[in-house]
Design a protein around this nucleic acid. Structure first.
Ligand SMILES: [Mn+2]
Ligand SMILES: [Mn+2]
Ligand SMILES: [Mn+2]
Ligand SMILES: [Mn+2]
Lengths: 147, 147
DNA sequence: AAAATAATGAAGCATAGGCTACATTTATTA
DNA sequence: TAATAAATGTAGCCTATGCTTCATTATTTT
């Protein structure tokens, strides 16, 4: 490839940076989304979300979970006081709901296509964070039609 | 949630750690996969893959791309010499092929379901890395049936 | 052939997200 | 109630990925 000036750099892959940039942005949100959903689950099940339980379910050590929750607090999604459980703000609870619904739809679509349920659950945990609103809408329409 | 000993911790979310762990592992591979595919593309198009072009397409600065390629070299997927382009080893080229094929199938499935092609391309860039072999197999079967 | 430009390299900084080790606090149990 | 166990907090370390800034090397242009 010959060296090139500012012009003439519109080779074919011109839209790639946007794609990769979006994937990076989605990934940056992934942990946040999984944590708020999990905290919401624990509160629904047990009335509270303890650091130890969060860490255990995510599969990390408790300091790692503590750090993640500190970030949620910084971002206004959660609150907590020393030696007490973690709670979600309204924003956090709303996000958890959206994430939960999206997760379910992704799994349902995979199953509808023929992916074994167990596999669908495994793969959806990572895939879900990259499903845009537009795609989610198409997924819903597909499931409605299939039903 | 009452404090608990080693026993009795088999609450419902017992399979969650595995799910999250797999998602983390897939994510760790994501950049590697995208880079090798891109390097393969550039070599096919221009006969060489330059750092500047790689960085531009991935949407990062050139030192970031350099660091990523250093890792590919460490992992035996690429090779390069100072001020020369980047090349793929046999292992790297094989990985690139697998990644390219998977990317195409993911896009095709999304489109078949009703996702607009442009959106499908965007979302697939992140989703693809979380599609397991089992799911890929189901995707292929679905596309065959649809056709 | 020199000068200017482009590409690459290398250093150093930041943040996210892992970990271990140890201190402190709370809850259970003896 | 004292002793033990569990949970939480805190400090410090590591790697991966980003970045900016500046030095060096190749390539083009004059
Ligand atoms: Mn997830
Ligand atoms: Mn999920
Ligand atoms: Mn990708
Ligand atoms: Mn791809």
């Amino acid at each position: 490839m010959p060296r090139q000036g500012k012009e003439g750099r519109k080779i074919d892959g011109a839209r790639l940076p946007e794609r990769f940039g979006r994937a990076r942005a989605a990934q940056a949100m992934a942990l946040t989304e999984d944590y708020v959903e999990l905290i919401s689950d624990l509160i629904a099940e047990f009335g509270e979300a303890r650091i130890a339980d969060i860490a255990q379910r995510v599969g990390v050590t408790h300091p790692t979970a503590t750090k993640a929750i500190a970030r949620l607090k910084r971002e206004g999604l959660a609150s907590s006081r020393p030696y007490r459980g973690v709670f979600l703000t309204d924003a956090g609870a709303a996000l958890a709901e959206r994430v939960r619904a999206r997760h379910r739809i992704v799994v349902d679509v995979l199953v509808a296509i023929g992916v074994p349920r167990e596999t669908a659950e495994l793969d959806a945990e990572g895939m879900e964070h990259h499903v845009s609103d537009a795609t989610l809408k198409a997924f819903k329409a597909y499931l409605r039609k299939k039903a």
